[in-house]
């Protein structure tokens, strides 16, 4: 639950702060956002599975963002839309994570219901 709360706080903060992002970075930010979102949901999933590791989470969060932006830059340089790779990978992982989170939550709910019935 915590990352969702953080996301909400961040969104509200962003609305009020109105940070200006330079126009030249507009190609890199969407990919970086995807990477960040992926890390956050990965963290949520790990939290639910009780496998959460702070170091892995933080290193993943930042290195994913940096690699995604770097790949996009490299793709721009080479004339190959490399950001598609990042979008594909992070997108599919997002869906994966969502699916697993959903399953885990449903299982948890069922267990609770069972316990109550007992």
């Amino acid at each position: 639950m915590i990352p969702f709360i953080g996301l909400l706080i961040g969104i509200i903060l962003g609305i009020f702060l109105k940070i200006d992002i330079p126009a030249s970075y507009t190609t890199y930010f969407p990919v970086a956002i995807l990477a960040a979102l992926d890390s956050v949901f990965g963290g949520v999933r790990a939290g639910i599975e009780n496998k959460f590791d702070t170091e892995i989470f933080i290193s993943g969060f930042f290195s994913n963002i940096i690699i995604a932006a770097g790949l996009t830059y490299l793709g721009d340089r080479l004339g190959v839309p490399m950001y598609l790779a990042a979008v594909l990978v992070f997108g599919s992982r997002l869906f994966n994570n969502f699916a697993i989170i959903r399953r885990l939550l449903i299982e948890k709910g069922r267990r609770k219901v069972k316990q109550r019935e007992e």
Partner: peptide
């Protein structure tokens, strides 16, 4: 987790 969530939210909205 909270901080990374906040960071992501801020970046998304901005």
């Amino acid at each position: 987790l909270l901080l990374s969530g906040i960071l992501t939210g801020v970046v998304i909205t901005s």
